[in-house]
Each structure stands twice: as structure tokens, then as C-alpha cells.
């Protein structure tokens, strides 16, 4: 189950593994080049982000209790990844604010971070999920709209990515239909797993529910998706 791996570089959301949130491909609203440099305030008082290299997330959170600026390194690690995830669910308009709100909320809760978890992604995804749920109606409307209107597919990228995109395009209306009909709980689990690249355990941790519940919700969600795809899906024959 390759998709069960926590990190799937080059294919999943987490393509930025370095320090810079905004390097790599620029979005349609790309700014003048200097925007790729982190804001200057971060450089103050010797809290250089370079120090964060090699520190695990839990260490960063712990250090941020005394040296709050260490927390900005978490932003550098995960903001782009979270943005991609939220942009899938809510579109680019809300994604930026949701990501910003996520880190503010995370920062204010950092005292309660469980140091046993070296990887902060489940924690952050949990916060993102709560914030995304405030937009549940527009998310559902987004999926409903997808049942009809075309989306801009990936225009470039590795061949296999484009190919997968083409396949998904063919069944997109049905998938969107299925997503629009899922309950919020099932949807959260399904998308954290499929789009967030979290494992069962990580989804459980993110949502604060038992792993068994993750399994049952995921199974139910997938069953519904498959039912909606039905026998009309030609891809299933080839699978």
C-alpha cells in the first residue's frame, strides 16, 4: 500500500522538504522575486531558521516554548503542504487564510503538544480539519459544481501524474458526486488518508479518534465512493 506511507515525495502534497515555503513552482499569483524570501522579521535576534535543520518537529515545538520564533520553522516546513491540501478541499481563495489560521491556532496550543509525536503533521492536519469544517457548505458546493464544470487539469509534470490526472478527469463527475454526498466525518477521514497521505494511526491522532473508528469510517466512505462509481466506471475493469 504505497499510499500508506506518511511521505510520498514528488507525488503527494509534501513536495517542499526544505526551508522555503515558496520556492519551486510559482502559483498564478506569483509575486516579485523577493517574496520568496521569508519576511525579514524572522531574522531578528539570531533565531536563524538554519538551526531548525535536522531538528524534528517535536523538538521545534518544545524549543518554541522558550524561543517562540522557532515555531516559524514549522511554518516553513509545512505551510506549502497544508496549502495544497486545503486548496484541494476549498479552492485557492480560502486556502491562504485557513493555513494562516492553522498556524496561529497551533502556536497558541503548542504547550499542549504531545512530545511523543515527533512528526507534527497529524497535529497540524487535525487543526486544519477543524478549520476546514467551518467551510463545509462551500466545500460541498465546490464538489457539486465539479459534477458539471471542467477543472484545469495538471498541464505539466511527470507523465504518470498527467496520466493519472486524465483518468481521474474521466470519472471526475462521479467522484465529485460521491464526495458531495459523504458525511463530514467520513469525508475528513477519507481525504486525510487519500489527499493528506496520513496513515491510519496518523488520521486517528489528527482527529482524536480510535484507529478502529478510522478504519470503519474509511471503509464506509470508500464503499460509498465505489457505489457511486458503480459499474459504469471503465477503469475498474482494468484495475
Amino acid at each position: 500500500m504505497a499510499w500508506g506511507l506518511p511521505v510520498n515525495p514528488g507525488r503527494g502534497l509534501w513536495r517542499d522538504t526544505g526551508q522555503h515555503v515558496l520556492d519551486g513552482k510559482a502559483g498564478p499569483h506569483a509575486m516579485v522575486p523577493s517574496m520568496t524570501a521569508p519576511p525579514a522579521g524572522a531574522r531578528a535576534a539570531g533565531a536563524a531558521p538554519d538551526r531548525a535543520v535536522g531538528e524534528c518537529d517535536a523538538d521545534l515545538v518544545a524549543r518554541s516554548l522558550d524561543d517562540p520564533e522557532a515555531f516559524a520553522a514549522l511554518f516553513d516546513r509545512y505551510a506549502a503542504m497544508l496549502y495544497r491540501y486545503v486548496s484541494r478541499r476549498l479552492g485557492p481563495e480560502s486556502a491562504e487564510d485557513v493555513v494562516g489560521d492553522t498556524f496561529l491556532a497551533a502556536f497558541s496550543k503548542r504547550h499542549r503538544y504531545d512530545q511523543a509525536h515527533r512528526d507534527a503533521r497529524p497535529w497540524l492536519f487535525g487543526i486544519v480539519t477543524k478549520l476546514v469544517s467551518r467551510h463545509h457548505r462551500s466545500e460541498a458546493a465546490r464538489y457539486r459544481a465539479l459534477r458539471r464544470s471542467p477543472v484545469d487539469g495538471p498541464q505539466e509534470g511527470p507523465a504518470e501524474r498527467v496520466e493519472a490526472g486524465v483518468t481521474a478527469t474521466a470519472v471526475r463527475p462521479l467522484l465529485a458526486e460521491a464526495l458531495a454526498k459523504l458525511s463530514r466525518r467520513d469525508l475528513d477521514v477519507l481525504l486525510l488518508f487519500a489527499w493528506g497521505d496520513l496513515t491510519y494511526e496518523e488520521v486517528a491522532q489528527a482527529l482524536g479518534i480510535p484507529v478502529g473508528t478510522v478504519r470503519s469510517r474509511l471503509n464506509r466512505a470508500r464503499r460509498k465512493v465505489r457505489a457511486t462509481l458503480g459499474d459504469t466506471n471503465p477503469m475498474r475493469e482494468e484495475a
Binding site: W3, L13, V21, L22, G24, A26, G27, P28, H29, A30, M31, V32, M35, T36, P38, P39, G41, A42, S64, P68, E69, F71, A72, F75, D76, A79, A80, Y83, R84, S87, R88, G91, P92, A95, E96, D97, V99, G100, F103, L104, F107, S108, L146, V151, G153, P154, R161, A164, G165, A168, T169, V171, R172, L175, A176, L190, L191, A194, W195, L229
Partner: peptide
């Protein structure tokens, strides 16, 4: 298939995302 849909819907982070980092920097 679902992953394919996700990739289609995905947007790259815009440069303005750095403003959100600024919000965070206010807090620390």
C-alpha cells in the same frame, strides 16, 4: 482515482502565502 482528482484540484501556494508567516511572526 480520488488521488487523481485531488491533484487536479490542487493549487500551488502563491507568493502571498508568506503574509501568513508574517501573521505567525506577530505572535511569537
Amino acid at each position: 482515482l480520488l488521488r487523481g482528482l485531488g491533484r487536479e484540484l490542487e493549487h500551488e501556494p502563491p507568493g502571498s502565502l508568506v503574509r501568513q508567516r508574517g501573521r505567525l511572526e506577530d505572535a511569537p
